[in-house]
Design a protein around this nucleic acid. Structure first.
Length: 366
DNA sequence: GGTCGTACTCCGCTTACGTCA
DNA sequence: ATTGACGTAAGCGGAGTACGA
């Protein structure tokens, strides 16, 4: 009797898994490839590569070098990829794709007395905050972000008055006492924060601004200085704000990707545990069958082995007296030790010598 | 060519604020 | 009205890189 339970060459199966994983199919480690290896591919992923390639195409200007500098960490993201970019609709100008994106708040600002061709500028201190007009405009969208922007403008009034007009804080939050502290903590690296003579408080970007940035992030998750300035100008934000937004956005993407990876690996682990349990049970059953039916030993053994390379199943019938199991479980080293000096011929159903694409599962064959 | 200082950007961590249930 | 959880803008520090002196 011969029990040919080939679990495959671990290393080869791992390679197979990796190849499959890179092929956008992140299935579980299938039971078909009986190799007990877990592919935790942390190699370069396709999506990021594509993204950076596109980025390279976009950056055929002077800023190429700088924009390429910090590419590598992102390129090493795990292969388990999920498009985490929300499908945020951005209101593009449908009439002309060549024209820059326009947003309602830009036009509102121009027509609503914002002046200076500017729209709703969250970074400029309004001389007079027309709160009624603001709420009227917000009424059209009823967006909480817009309302946040309104309170933000009110806060700007506060900061524009030497950080001391706390009574004007319309938000009524309990953090008023931190305003002076905020002012002191202004970073020297953000010198543009002080261009208006005061330090800035944290703000909420408007819905449209976020949508625009999101669209831009879809195109390239990093910015070169030129793009940053253009975005900042288009959104009436400071370049530093655009920069921070992209940094935070990348961090969020990475965090979510990590969560997805973790979940995927968890499922892989569960699958492999279950597979391991099943194979152990199968092995026990076969051993029990072997002990209970010795007559079975007289029959030619049937070896069902799967090539780890091409996953082709080969069935071979041979005599029990002249063959050894190709591999009971795992390593060729084990086979080597067990057969050392025995002089027994070994049998493998695959003629790998004729096909260089298939690696032998045992070194003792050579 | 090697070294140093500076500027810039990135990331990770953290803080603080706004929003919502 | 209060409160805790959550999302996120922003600050800070360290690291890496480019560039000129």
């Amino acid at each position: 009797m011969e029990l040919g339970l080939s679990l495959g060459d671990a290393s080869k199966t791992f390679g197979t898994f990796m190849e499959k994983s890179n092929d956008h199919h992140h299935h579980h480690v299938t039971s078909k490839s009986l190799g007990f290896c877990m592919g935790l591919s942390i190699g370069p992923n396709v999506n990021n590569t594509k993204e950076t390639d596109q980025q390279d195409e976009d950056h055929d200007d002077d800023d190429d070098e700088k924009s390429k500098k910090h590419k590598s960490p992102e390129a090493e993201a795990p292969i388990v990829q999920l498009d985490l970019l929300p499908n945020t609709p951005v209101q593009r100008n449908p009439s002309s794709s060549a024209q820059p994106l326009t947003f309602p708040w830009v036009q509102m600002g121009g027509g609503g007395g914002g002046g200076g061709g500017g729209g709703f500028d969250v970074n400029k201190f309004p001389l007079v905050v027309d709160h009624q007009a603001e709420t009227d405009q917000d009424g059209a969208s009823s967006s909480p972000n817009n309302s946040a922007a309104s309170s933000f403008q009110t806060d700007f009034c506060i900061y524009n008055n030497n950080n001391n007009k706390r009574d004007f804080d319309s938000s009524g939050s309990g953090a008023l006492g931190n305003h002076d502290l905020e002012g002191e903590r202004a970073s020297s690296r953000n010198s543009d924060d002080d261009e208006n003579g005061c330090t800035r408080k944290k703000l909420r970007l408007s819905k449209d601004q976020s949508a625009f940035l999101e669209e831009s992030f879809k195109e390239h998750n990093t910015l070169n200085p030129k793009q940053k300035l253009a975005l900042a100008k288009q959104l009436n934000l400071r370049p530093r704000q655009v920069e921070v937004w992209f940094q935070n956005r990348r961090a969020r993407t990475k965090l979510k990707q990590t969560e997805v990876d973790c979940e995927y690996l968890k499922r892989c682990c569960e699958t492999l545990t279950e597979e391991n349990r099943r194979l152990h049970k199968e092995l026990q059953e076969l051993r029990a069958l072997k002990s209970s039916n010795p007559f079975y030993m007289q029959l030619p053994a049937t070896t069902l082995t799967m090539c780890p390379s091409c996953e082709r199943v080969a069935t071979t019938t041979t005599t029990a007296t002249t063959t050894n199991p190709p591999a009971t479980t795992t390593s060729a080293a084990t086979d080597q030790t067990s057969n050392k000096g025995s002089g027994r011929p070994r049998f493998y159903p695959f003629s790998h010598t004729q096909n260089r694409g298939h690696q032998s599962t045992s070194t003792s064959e050579k």
